[in-house]
Structures are given as structure tokens and as C-alpha cells.
Design a protein around this nucleic acid. Structure first.
Ligand code: MN
Ligand code: MN
Ligand code: ZN
Ligand code: ZN
Lengths: 139, 139
DNA sequence: GAGATAATTGATATTTTGTATCAATTATAG
DNA sequence: CTATAATTGATACAAAATATCAATTATCTC
């Protein structure tokens, strides 16, 4: 929910402005995987006059809070994924670049083990599995 | 080793040219996390006259073969990580952006389970754990 | 509510990063 | 060596990200 993102901003002293609200709503409703400029386009369909810079800055803000994460998905632009509950998981076809999400998160005690050894406090993770999808394999 | 990368190119019909050899050597010896332009700089210290495009293309080639992977590490440019044995693991401090590698790979049968369900043939993965490092936490 | 204060915004300019093109070069096969 | 095709690198271009700053807006104090 975009409400959660709003609250996350608010509790850290950031203002939840009209522009930011539209950006967050659009981001959440579209379900991530957007680039900054793609998001700007969508945002401008809802509210005219929102600057590109504001979108970039809002994305940076969320990234800084660990709620969002830039990843590559083929092109040169960053695609942003929401880190709901701190994590996100992808299955990516290296042949057709298809990206599939999956929820299963069976890392077990790996994060805790690694973190403990190195003195980290873990907050989340991104797991991307690479392979060849059924369509691309059977050709 | 850069020999492995060379062989990977060779066995797929790509020529292992002088320029490519220097690029691969530099990439491996420096131990990844470089951007394309950073790598270009380093490459040019070893062999003058190597074009930026050749570096970009060689990186693309390796990415296409699943031996390399672009990730974001703060800046707007792609940082390339070597996918030795098909995988790579990061521990990233969200406070200071420090990136630590770890080898431990205890995903268990997760890849196989997810892959089986969706008809994927898995070739590798990237796991990034996000958190706060000891230095940043104790301040 | 009015004014002071500081955060935020968006236009603009600039830099950085990535891509397309193409003639010249180089590697490989025969 | 010659023919062929892959590769290269200069150049031009496009896309993406960042810097700047005056104008606007939100919040706080009164
Ligand atoms: Mn996703
Ligand atoms: Mn790494
Ligand atoms: Zn596919
Ligand atoms: Zn740190």
C-alpha cells in the first residue's frame, strides 16, 4: 500500500506532499518494475505539472529508506522494485528477459548466520534466480 | 580466472582478440564491481587505444552468457559483478553503501522448487542482503 | 490567521551513461 | 595468400541521471 510508504516518509520527518502522494500511489498501483521516466509519464496522467526531478528525488528517498531498490532489467535505465516486507524475489529468463515474481522466501537462517558473522543487522534482501523459461527452452 | 571467460567466449564461436583478453584480465584481476567506464580507464592503462565501445560490447557479451551481471550500487552507472559458478552474494550496508561479498550459498532446494513449479531451468542467482554494518550501527 | 522558517518543487542546464553507425582493421577458414 | 566475416574504435547520437536555483509550499511560532 502506498499508505505505508507515506507513513514511512512521515515518521522520518519527510513531508507527504501532494506530488509525493501521487508518485507513491502510481508506483504502488502499477506494481513496480518501472523506470523513473516511465513513472513520470504515468504520474503526469494523473496530475499535470509534476516535475521529473520530483519523481527522481522521491524514488531516491524511498531507496534510502530501503523501501525501494533499483535493478537492471535489460535497458540502461534503473527499474525500481518495491521491497515489501523488506524483500523481493525474481525469476529471470536470460533468453527473453521475462521477469517473474515469486513470493516463496526460504532463505532459512542464512541471513542471520552471515549477518552474525560480520556484525550486520539485516533488514531485507533481494533474490534473483536466472535461467531459461519454458517457452524459450522448448523451441 | 580470465582464462575461463576466454574459453567461454571461444567455445561459443566468439573470437578471443587482444582487446578482449586485456578487458577480461583487467576485469578479473580487479575483482568486479567496476562500471564500464571505470573498466575502460583501467584497460587503457594496460593497453592504449582500446575503445570504450569495445569494453561495453565485451561486457554485454559476458552478460549475455550469464557470466556477468549489472547491478546498481548507488550511482547511476551499472556495476558489473562476476557470476563465478553462476552465483554471487552481497551484504550491503544501506547506511554507508559498503558492499561485502560472502560465499556461503545455502539456498537449499529453493531454486529447484521454484523452477520446477514454473518450468524454468535455473542457471544461477544473485542474492543481496541489505542491512546496517557494525560501524554504521555503533555510532 | 499572519509572518518567519525551512523543506520541497520544477524548470533548466549539464554531465554521465549507454547505444547506433560505419569505415578500417583483424582474425579465421580454405 | 585470399576471401570472408567478425571485430574494432572513432564519431555521432540518445537516454538517463545529476546539479542548480528561484519560486512555491508546508510547518512552526506567535
Ligand atoms: Mn519484481
Ligand atoms: Mn560482489
Ligand atoms: Zn524466456
Ligand atoms: Zn555501513
Amino acid at each position: 500500500m502506498s499508505d505505508e510508504l507515506s507513513r514511512a516518509l512521515a515518521t522520518r520527518g519527510y513531508r507527504v506532499t501532494a506530488a509525493r502522494r501521487v508518485i507513491l500511489d502510481t508506483l504502488v498501483e502499477h506494481g513496480s518494475h518501472l523506470t523513473a521516466d516511465e513513472l513520470t509519464e504515468l504520474v503526469r496522467q494523473r496530475a499535470t505539472g509534476i516535475g521529473r526531478m520530483t519523481v527522481y528525488r522521491t524514488l531516491d528517498l524511498l531507496c534510502g529508506l530501503g523501501l525501494l531498490r533499483p535493478v537492471y532489467q535489460g535497458t540502461g535505465a534503473a527499474h525500481y522494485i518495491l521491497m515489501e516486507d523488506g524483500h523481493h524475489h525474481h525469476l529471470i529468463c536470460t533468453a527473453c528477459s521475462r521477469v517473474i515474481e515469486f513470493d516463496e522466501c526460504a532463505l532459512g537462517d542464512l541471513p542471520a548466520r552471515v549477518a552474525g558473522r560480520l556484525g550486520f543487522r539485516i533488514e531485507g534482501h533481494l533474490l534473483e534466480l536466472y535461467g531459461v523459461c519454458a517457452e524459450c527452452a522448448g523451441s
